[in-house]
Design a protein around this nucleic acid. Sequence first.
DNA 1: CACTAATCGAGACGGTACGTCGCGTCTTGTG
DNA 2: CACAAGACGCGACGTACCGTCTCGATTAGTG
Lengths: 192, 192, 192, 192
Amino acid sequence: MANPRGTGRPRDPRIEADAHAAVRALLVEGGYAAVTGAAVAARAGTTKAALYRRWPALPHLVHEAVFPGELALDLSLGADLPTDLAGVVRGARDALCTPVAAAALPGLLAEIGTFPDLHAAMLQRFAGVFTALDDRLRVAVAAGEAHPEARADDLLRLVIGAVIAGLLLTPGALDDGWVDRLTGTLVRSLRS
Amino acid sequence: MANPRGTGRPRDPRIEADAHAAVRALLVEGGYAAVTGAAVAARAGTTKAALYRRWPALPHLVHEAVFPGELALDLSLGADLPTDLAGVVRGARDALCTPVAAAALPGLLAEIGTFPDLHAAMLQRFAGVFTALDDRLRVAVAAGEAHPEARADDLLRLVIGAVIAGLLLTPGALDDGWVDRLTGTLVRSLRS
Amino acid sequence: MANPRGTGRPRDPRIEADAHAAVRALLVEGGYAAVTGAAVAARAGTTKAALYRRWPALPHLVHEAVFPGELALDLSLGADLPTDLAGVVRGARDALCTPVAAAALPGLLAEIGTFPDLHAAMLQRFAGVFTALDDRLRVAVAAGEAHPEARADDLLRLVIGAVIAGLLLTPGALDDGWVDRLTGTLVRSLRS
Amino acid sequence: MANPRGTGRPRDPRIEADAHAAVRALLVEGGYAAVTGAAVAARAGTTKAALYRRWPALPHLVHEAVFPGELALDLSLGADLPTDLAGVVRGARDALCTPVAAAALPGLLAEIGTFPDLHAAMLQRFAGVFTALDDRLRVAVAAGEAHPEARADDLLRLVIGAVIAGLLLTPGALDDGWVDRLTGTLVRSLRS
DNA sequence: CACTAATCGAGACGGTACGTCGCGTCTTGTG
DNA sequence: CACAAGACGCGACGTACCGTCTCGATTAGTG
């Protein structure tokens, strides 16, 4: 898609940033339905053609605008397990409950059916967290804080699922008390 | 929407049923994107006007077609707690992982942003399960099988979230082993 | 269409009159496009079914409402020819330039293509005028006021055409001066 | 409507021509009622959106397709008055009695009520004829062939009205004999 | 006095056209 | 090459009107 050789007029790098900003603004103001090709282009001061030169379809742009990079939950390996799990829970909630993310997620998840590559891209955002959580879990098992069959994927899916379900079905319920309760639940569930 | 008095020509009851069936068939064959007003009408042997007379928008019809009534998980109050929780987990998975439901859910969840009344309608499907689970939990607390702070809403949201996250992000992973692992997780998390 | 035997509930005679009045009111207020089945029924305090029991289609009702009976131009046989012709011109103009008629005519003429029976019905309204004009013309020929080849149908068509063209293309131009000028034109054209 | 600056992708000029041809074909085959947005688009090998980009509504397209330019009656200034008038009468008849025009006119005239701008557009088609007739009439007055009060607008309205009335009410009667009779009528009516 | 038969109000029915909108692509002219 | 601009094919949207139908409730005349 990108120009392999260095030939030709180079792409205007501001368009990427402007498009990201436009998407985020539209998401907050009008929800996922307001993120129209024409609307994004107008808001970003460019045209649809410039967008489609960069992203294969609108949802890809939205995904990139909402989740620009990998989630950084910085599991402070060394703190005790409850503290680290609380960090994961809180981090996942904070990342997905941004006004922008909350507006985009339902639509993005629905588009997975149409654009399978979005699926992989979204999962990729959690890859680092998964690795860190896997490592942390191994340490906890060695320390006798978690039973040996504990799996990081189940754990992470549980957290993400709880956040998504809360986001979609009971928005507003994911306060700090919820973080504490879910953390406690996870800690207890890890005991042998 | 419905005719309050008995006046006027009564609605043809077959249209409701045919529309439901048409939506389910289209969902299975072509996914959520195939559920078009014209396609549903054609398949149901009726017209768009007849559909819009009954439902304010297509997603309402889809919701009704996919979740015709309340989820019945028949918590067998009396069995031991692990068995009952396994029933809830398995029941939620079975209800939401039907080919029809799996095809409809992502789109349906995304439409909540546009049609807020869909939100209440979807939650309503779990009202009975919540009540039953709440009762069961109280019994478990009294029997010393669960700690007193355990909350049915958190528990149910955890189950639903796990299913939805699994459905959206890792379809195919929700096998019987997953049911057993999640049940074990929940049982352990309930211990004081 | 009507009930041949006297059996059954008799029709409510007020509906005819109310429907006529409703059509005329809607024509004046919103033009031909506002004369909808539902609108007429609502305005007349009845229902579409009652209307279609009486008229085969809406244009028939409109025609009846706008031109309830034959045009009565009362050619005062005996006056001089210019006076009589002025009466015809003025009468045709007055009959077709009513706000109601002016609003209905273009639509009615267009429906002729769909309902050929409307055609005959509309022509019928001029039958009496034609006969009278034909007689008057014969007298004029005998008196040497008109050349022998003068034909009433050509003459009448000329008058009606002039009114319709004025109505459709230059509304407002059909004032009394126009009546005098057209009358003069016709009188001169009849001279041998 | 049109793109003022030369920017953007230029409109495909074939679409205009194809749409015109499609409208004419549909008019002849199925009458005014067959001229549907979808039908025109399909026949022209394009889409409804492309049509609505060019014309504000269907009747405007129909008008343009049926009367692409101004009527050219080429009054042969110089022939004697009866010959020139016969040319006007015959020309107006020929222009409005084409199968295409005859099918379109009733509908088009009826739409004037909904789209007032159509009115001006239709009158414009006769502007040149009016000017020429006005000039010719002045010559005739100077030559003593017509009385001084003769007005071209009255005359033209008379001709057009006669054609329209004949078209709408007595189709088939506008043969060459009718042309001669009407011409004679006009010539006599112009004498002082 | 029941019975019959057509009308009444109300409103749903199938059908069809309307005009709009969004998508992702394409085609110009201009850097 | 990229860019701005905007037309293109495609297809869905939700609304409106048409003329018909199906109800339950009236309202006469008839047996």
